[in-house]
């Protein structure tokens, strides 16, 4: 944006042209307030989703049925904390401190992905969440690797690598279950039954009901519509379910020769908006868990910062003493 593009063009128009030419916006660049606001909302929401998303999976670490599966799950949930960190850092480059974003999460002002308001009820849910939820997240995140804001796109490149690993791990759990005993197969089918529709809803409202999408597409924050991403996800996942020998709980699901895609049944948008509005099965529990961790940790954070201050005072005093001795 350093090149003048004609006096008659406003700075907003220059910005639009800059992103339209597939340039990356960096923190020091001028950007419209609405662009900045949209990004802070989206990136912090994404960070919160990583952190809240740790909870339903952490629920099963203690009960993982083998030591190997325990290690894999623990490492995965730990990765999500790491993703939360990169994303908070990316959002901070837009001028909003992490404390403020966390405060918004804890007071209910900021949202996170609704999928994490569903409970994890059996070990098979660790497979289904990895396979379906991470699968849906990746579809969205691959697109975000090319998003117009530089720090966000770079964070996403790193996150995508780990997420695709997580999805494979989830699929492996499902494979072991579907090849396993009768009880294991039943557990796998039950998990698919419960997670299928919520994962399909993860792409958000349909395009004709998604007011912010057009602007985000123009700014190259988003590069594919909700419905496009959803269709890609369904096409890919149906084949994987067939491979596992599991049945997707949608009687209207069928291959359409003409479109080259799967047709699928009506999404229950009432449920979708209910969960977003806070009436999902675990909304209150998830926020309560985050609040508890935050409040219980307050004295620890206070101690760490008090100690750091004391140490820097001591260091300064030491230096002064050395100076005066010299």
């Amino acid at each position: 944006m350093s090149q003048p593009m004609g006096e008659s063009i406003s700075i907003e128009e220059r910005f639009e042209a800059f992103v339209a030419e597939e340039n990356r916006v960096e923190p020091k660049h001028w950007m419209p307030d609405a662009y900045r606001k949209t990004l802070v909302r989206q990136i912090s929401q994404h960070a919160h989703s990583e952190v809240v998303g740790m909870l339903p999976e952490a629920n099963w670490i203690s009960r993982a049925p083998s030591l190997r599966s325990k290690l894999i799950l623990l490492a995965k949930v730990q990765d999500e904390a790491g993703h939360g960190l990169y994303l908070y850092s990316a959002a901070e480059t837009l001028g909003t401190p992490r404390e403020k974003m966390i405060d918004d999460l804890l007071t209910g002002k900021a949202k996170y992905s609704s999928i994490f308001n569903y409970p994890t009820l059996t070990w098979a849910d660790m497979g289904a969440v990895g396979w379906l939820v991470d699968g849906a997240a990746i579809a969205n995140q691959v697109m975000l690797c090319r998003t117009s804001y530089g720090p966000y796109s770079r964070a996403m490149v790193r996150i995508c690598k780990e997420e695709s690993f997580h999805q494979r791990q989830g699929f492996e759990i499902m494979m072991n279950l579907s090849k396993g005993t009768k009880g294991q197969k039943e557990m796998a089918q039950d998990a698919l039954n419960r997670w299928w529709w919520p994962s399909v809803m993860m792409f958000g409202p349909s395009d004709d009901n998604s007011p912010n999408s057009a602007q985000s597409m123009r700014w190259r924050i988003k590069r594919k519509s909700n419905d496009e991403l959803r269709q890609e996800y369904i096409d890919k996942t149906v084949k994987q379910a067939e491979y596992l020998g599991l049945t997707i709980p949608d009687k209207d699901l069928k291959w359409n020769e003409d479109t080259g895609h799967y047709d699928f049944g009506e999404i229950d948008w009432t449920e979708f908006f209910d969960v977003i509005a806070g009436n999902g099965p675990c909304n209150a529990e998830r926020i309560a868990a985050r609040q508890k961790a935050h409040n219980d940790g307050a004295w620890v954070r206070d101690a760490a910062s008090a100690y750091a201050k004391k140490q820097s005072r001591r260091k300064k005093l030491e230096e002064e003493t050395q100076d005066s001795a010299a």
Binding site: L55, A58, S62, A81, A293, G297, V300
Partner: peptide
Amino acid sequence: SGWCGHGPILEQ
């Protein structure tokens, strides 16, 4: 492992 998801700050 019981701390995972519940630590006093993400880094910890």
